[in-house]
């Protein structure tokens, strides 16, 4: 399944990359490859903005505005209600 095109905030600064490969290791959607000992973005639209690559890059070569894309959470926030997302909401009896 593919999501929207040309929408994510992922940025890679190839000039500072040291080619450690962490971004390849942590990305759940195979967005990066290592090519000639430098990271390259090979599938940008597959990025889900989880932020794992940016968090784990030792030289801050990657940046992304990370967050959970959750309509319920975003709406709740916009309406000033509690419950930041479906995964913590406890809709119990």
């Amino acid at each position: 399944m593919r999501y929207l095109k040309n929408v994510v905030t992922l940025q890679l600064n190839e000039s500072v990359c040291i080619g450690c490969g962490r971004c390849v290791e942590v990305c759940p959607h195979a967005v990066f490859h290592i090519h000639h000992r430098r990271a390259v973005i090979v599938d940008r639209d597959a990025c889900m903005e989880c932020g794992a690559c940016a968090r784990n890059c030792p030289v801050d070569a990657v940046s992304v505005i990370a967050g959970v894309g959750c309509v319920t959470g975003l709406l709740n926030r916009a309406l000033g209600r509690k419950g930041d997302c479906c995964c913590t909401e406890d809709s119990c009896c």
Partner: peptide, 20 residues
């Protein structure tokens, strides 16, 4: 179904904002 983006494992925050 748009609400289901929060559960899915391939949707991005920027994408969901656009959907909204």
């Amino acid at each position: 179904l748009m609400n289901f983006t929060g559960c899915s494992t391939f949707t991005s925050l920027s994408g969901v904002k656009r959907e909204m």
